[in-house]
């Protein structure tokens, strides 16, 4: 299925920020914004929901730590107990350092993998950018032309009010 989108390109972050806010006030739907760097507050202006990745990070860290402390108890006190330096089988103080390391490892690597999966990033993926330069110095705002009430001319005027350097309508295949 294809849809019509409206693309406008901006030169600096003040403009994209104001434009994003303005089009949302007009009740238009922002499909996405393309930016060369993270602009603080832009996600709020565009109305993007905050990421839920912290929960994944928390869960993975907890799972990693729980597994590791169990594994240390099991190997040291059950599977093959060895007396080293007269320390007790369940030497919990000595188990904590590695537990911590594994927690960080699981949480850190897992979160990054989760980022790659949720954002559909993989080695060799071909990047499709709406406009050249959005990884360098340009900002692109993409609106969806939902229905017949979408007035392209009005939107173009609105974007040009915020110094849009380029506007165009496009047909796009939905992902």
């Amino acid at each position: 299925m294809s849809r019509r989108i409206f693309l406008s390109v901006f030169d600096n972050e003040d403009d994209i920020m104001d434009a994003a806010r303005a089009v949302r006030e007009e009740g238009l739907t922002i499909v996405d914004i393309y930016a060369p760097y993270a602009v603080h507050g832009l996600e709020k202006a565009a109305g993007f929901a905050p990421s839920r990745l912290p929960w994944i990070c928390f869960a993975l860290g907890l799972a990693g730590a729980a597994f590791k402390i169990w594994f240390e108890f099991w190997t040291t006190s059950t599977s093959w107990p060895i007396n080293v330096g007269g320390k007790p089988w369940n030497s919990w103080p000595a188990f904590l350092p590695i537990t911590f390391e594994v927690m960080v490892l699981a949480a850190g690597v897992g979160t990054v993998l989760a980022l790659f999966i949720t954002s559909r990033l993989w080695p060799g993926k071909k990047a499709v950018m709406p406009f050249p330069g959005v990884t360098d110095d340009r900002f692109a705002l993409i609106l969806e032309e939902k229905d017949a009430t979408f007035n392209a001319d009005a939107v173009r005027r609105l974007c040009e009010k915020y110094n849009a350097v380029h506007t165009e309508e496009r047909e796009e295949n939905k992902r």
Binding site: D32, I33, V104, L115, W122, K126, A127
Partner: peptide
């Protein structure tokens, strides 16, 4: 660079997640 950059296109929805992950990694590191 095409392989290493994982098809990064500057989408802001990705940026939002990316910033979150960066903060989490800083908190873990």
């Amino acid at each position: 660079m095409g392989i290493l950059s994982l098809g990064w296109d500057g989408s802001y929805r990705t940026w939002v997640r990316y910033e979150t992950v960066y903060l989490l990694l800083a908190g873990l590191a």
